[in-house]
């Protein structure tokens, strides 16, 4: 039902990749390794839409992890085959090891929200969107393939926005993804 695509570049840490793969070990989904090209993450994401035979694709970064069992829950909740199904993620700030829950307001800013607010709805007007915590219907995503291949920042989030504006989007109130933040480019805002 779901193919998992991992884009790997020479810069990626192998220990983190091992942890990532370990977290995926029981998910019963084929994993596809995509060769990343320098400065072209969107290109890799677009390439991911063309591998595998399953109707859905999920993007996992080699330095992140999933919460085991999430893909089983997603499979059980796909129902009427929405364009995108997204879920909650834990944001781990590796500089101080703190764990947050939140959403993105632009491609570099995360709004950290209290856990009681985690059941937020898709909010296309305020442009809050999820990171790459979800599954995308390949058939629908392929319409945006060209645009996607030109993107460099948070391409999966932008894809989710594009698909969510025109198609059905489903929210699953489960934590499924652990996003490790270690770059200096990401800003956190507390609300």
């Amino acid at each position: 039902m779901i193919d998992i695509a991992i884009i790997i570049t020479p810069k990626d840490d192998e220990t983190k990749l091992q942890r990532c793969l370990y977290s995926l070990r029981n998910e019963q989904c084929p994993i596809y390794f995509i060769d990343g090209k320098q400065g072209k993450i969107g290109h890799g994401r677009a390439e991911s839409l063309n591998v595998g035979r399953n109707p859905y694709v999920s993007f996992v970064d080699p330095d992140d992890e999933i919460i085991p069992g999430i893909y089983g829950k997603i499979r059980a909740n796909l129902g009427f085959y929405p364009e995108v199904l997204y879920h909650n993620e834990l944001i781990v700030d590796s500089t101080n090891g703190t764990i947050h829950h939140g959403w993105m307001v632009d491609y570099t800013t995360i709004q950290v929200v209290p856990e009681r607010l985690r059941g937020f709805l898709w909010d296309s007007q305020n442009q809050r969107f999820a990171h790459h915590r979800g599954v995308f219907k390949k058939e629908s995503a392929l319409k945006y393939e060209k645009q996607l291949s030109k993107l460099h920042e948070c391409c999966e989030g932008q894809l989710m926005q594009m698909m969510g504006t025109n198609g059905e989007i489903k929210y699953l109130n489960e934590f499924g993804y652990i996003w490790n933040i270690h770059g200096k480019n990401t800003v956190m805002e507390w609300i």
């Binding site: 370990y22 070990r25 029981n26 084929p30 390794f33 591998v51 595998g52």
Partner: peptide
């Protein structure tokens, strides 16, 4: 079984 077009793997241990 039907063919595949890319290499895929699940579960890597050390």
């Amino acid at each position: 079984a039907p063919n595949r077009n890319a290499f895929d793997v699940l579960a890597v241990s050390n």
